[in-house]
């Protein structure tokens, strides 16, 4: 729990005139569970997009395990060990839950092992009974869970979760918290969330994004009482 697994330095993304990210410096240690928060439009999703290679940063460097992944292709980054659950579930809509999971087990060579893992993960997330359903016909909450299951199954070294609790019931949120803590026992996890209740359940260190930069970084309790953070949120809207 010492060397940083991920180090971003001065990462900036400009869309024409809009500076979605304006020099983000962030470092995550191996084995950490980090939460990112920030008002809407702060740049959290954009930052994740840079980490996964969906966007190329305008400026700055991203180092993952001693390698600069700035110019890498998406699949190269994925193979290097970064997996993501995106904010809007992005799945294989024409295929079944089972097939979606099968595809996320690319690393597992043996077919029987894949089948075992599929059942195991679905069980863990609590959606084993949805196994045969076609994704395109499922509700948003269920789709969220399937995407989570895919990340868990593919077992990347660094797991990125973009608003995993959105649209979930309280019971589901609690289950989710347990899954994430469990996942964290052998993976590094970075979670973007708005739900403070939920963050309290899982977080230790929280990084606050604001207007494309890191505003503060501290323990949860200190963050909750930080005046700057309050000002940022109250300026926009109240925190639930």
């Amino acid at each position: 729990m010492s060397a940083p697994i991920l180090r971003a330095q001065g990462v900036a993304v400009h869309f024409g005139g809009v500076k979605a990210l304006d020099g983000v410096d962030l470092s995550v240690d191996r084995g950490e569970l980090r939460c990112l928060i920030g008002p809407n439009g702060a740049g959290k999703t954009t930052f994740f997009r840079c980490l996964t290679g969906v966007l190329k940063p305008t400026l700055g460097t991203i180092v993952f395990r001693d390698e600069s992944i700035g110019g890498w292709e998406r699949h190269e980054i994925a193979r290097a060990g970064i997996g993501i659950k995106t904010q809007v579930p992005s799945l294989f809509d024409g295929l079944s839950v089972e097939e979606n999971l099968w595809l996320s087990l690319r690393k597992v060579a043996e077919e029987r092992r894949r089948q075992e893992l599929i059942l195991e993960v679905l069980d863990r997330i609590g959606i084993a009974d949805l196994r045969k359903l076609i994704l395109g016909r499922m509700a948003h909450g269920q789709r969220q869970l399937v995407e989570l299951a895919m990340v868990v199954a593919s077992s990347p070294e660094l797991v990125l979760l973009d608003e995993p609790a959105a649209g979930m019931t309280d019971a589901e949120v609690e289950r989710l918290a347990r899954v994430i803590l469990d996942l964290n026992s052998n993976h590094t996890v970075v979670v973007v969330e708005h739900d403070m209740q939920f963050i309290r359940m899982i977080a230790n260190i929280v990084t606050v994004f604001h207007q494309g930069r890191v505003l503060v970084e501290d323990h949860v309790e200190s963050i909750l009482h930080d005046d700057r953070v309050r000002a940022v949120y109250l300026g926009k809207k109240n925190v639930e």
Binding site: T52, G53, V54, E73, R74, H75, A78, R79, G83, I84, T86, S90, L91, F92, D93, G94, L95, E99, W102, L103, S104, R106, K107, M150, S154
Partner: peptide, 20 residues
């Protein structure tokens, strides 16, 4: 099956490590 994955959602397939 990887081809089917790319057909259904190219970006997702790449994020899972498939070379679309």
């Amino acid at each position: 099956r990887a081809i089917a994955a790319v057909r259904e959602n190219e970006v997702r397939a790449e994020l899972l490590g498939y070379n679309a």
